[in-house]
């Protein structure tokens, strides 16, 4: 029955999507973007969308391939971000001042461990109960960071965190940061595509579709699910490191419940059937969040953002990606009447 699923139907050509002209065209576009855009568009629109896209990608992986909607991926990212602030240097003066090449792997590891721990708690649940338990874990971390002063510095959090200067490049500057985020995003995107077509990913999708049957076939269902959380945690951790470098600061507000929901919205609006959806959703989200206020003013811009998201999911349950798929299919139909 798994062959009926479009996402699982592709293994005959494992790299078909990675090698498609569309992917290369998108990559080329993203590579030349800094040459045509202003620093603001490079950093605050491009860089920010890529960072949010990476975090949403970790949710997309869990939800799309594993059927597990975890709200706490933002928390895993935030915890990794906090680790960058705590293990590195910050303006509060409580950092360990370790070099970046120690801090970054540690931060990603902590993010991955957090996500794995979340997985251990959440994998026995399904559907809305997974959402509830991951929401609770995310809220617990939020409240911990808000009230713990010894480690997380409470409500104020940490400021003065900058991306390091490596190889003579200041990675905090718009163009270097953009390319750094693009590199990490592309690597995560490729990794998700690869894993989805590797035996582990195929087993995960089969478990999503019929856990009982997979269990009967001898697969360890829970172990696969926890492993998916661990993999998603690495991606979220990388996103969290970039997020804290992007903002230059982190505080409980960065990982609050509305931010957790933002990541869910990005993933859903983009479309959770394919990793590209996370980035499409992030671009759409960042552009709306940045410019909606110019169109409808301060009182109603969030209403407009909400309405647009509603419109997208009402007309295309698969999100923006679904719109694209529909457009492509109708084009193909016109070009190839026999198809």
């Amino acid at each position: 029955m798994s062959t009926l699923d479009p996402a699982a139907a592709a293994p005959a050509r494992p790299w078909s999507i990675a090698g498609s002209p569309l992917t290369w065209a998108a990559l080329a576009l993203l590579l030349v973007y800094p040459f045509v855009a202003s620093p603001f568009f490079i950093y605050q629109v491009g860089g920010y969308a890529l960072v949010l896209g990476i975090i949403a990608l970790s949710l997309m992986f869990l939800a799309g391939y594993g059927g597990m909607v975890s709200l706490s991926q933002m928390s895993a990212a935030g915890l990794a971000g906090y680790m960058v602030a705590i293990l590195g240097s910050n303006s509060v003066g409580t950092g360990f001042d370790w070099p970046w090449w120690v801090v970054v792997p540690m931060a990603v590891l902590v993010g991955a461990l957090f996500s794995t721990g979340t997985g251990l708690l959440a994998v026995r649940t399904a559907g809305i109960y997974t959402i509830m338990i991951t929401l609770a874990i995310g809220m617990a971390l939020f409240l911990l960071t808000q009230q713990n002063y010894a480690i997380f510095n409470g409500h104020s959090g940490f400021a003065g965190i900058a991306a390091p200067v490596v190889l003579g490049v200041d990675w905090h500057q718009p163009v270097p940061f953009y390319y750094l985020a693009l590199f990490v995003a592309a690597a995560c995107y490729a990794a998700v595509l690869y894993v989805a077509r590797a035996p582990f990913g195929l087993a995960l999708q089969a478990i999503r579709d019929n856990p009982r049957r997979m269990h009967a076939l001898g697969f360890h269902v829970l172990a696969h699910r926890v492993a998916a959380y661990a993999f998603a945690g690495v991606i979220a951790g990388l996103g969290g490191v970039l997020l804290v470098w992007f903002n230059g600061r982190i505080s409980p507000g960065t990982i609050g419940v509305d931010r957790m929901i933002d990541i869910l919205v990005i993933a859903i609006v983009g479309g959770i059937r394919h990793p590209a959806g996370a980035f499409l959703g992030a671009i759409f989200f960042v552009i709306l969040e940045t410019f909606a206020i110019d169109i409808v003013g301060a009182e109603r811009f969030n209403t407009m953002i909400g309405m647009l998201f509603l419109v997208v999911v009402v007309f295309s349950p698969d999100g923006l990606l679904g719109l694209w798929g529909k457009a492509r299919r109708s084009l193909q139909r016109q070009e190839l009447p026999n198809n």
């Binding site: 605050q44 920010y48 959090g157 400021a159 903002n247 230059g248 600061r249 982190i250 505080s251 507000g253 960065t254 609050g256 509305d258 940045t290 206020i293 301060a298 811009f301």
Partner: peptide
């Protein structure tokens, strides 16, 4: 410009 009272959103 609008923020949600968090420092990140204010800087953005």
């Amino acid at each position: 410009g609008s923020s949600d009272a968090s420092p990140d959103s204010a800087v953005r």
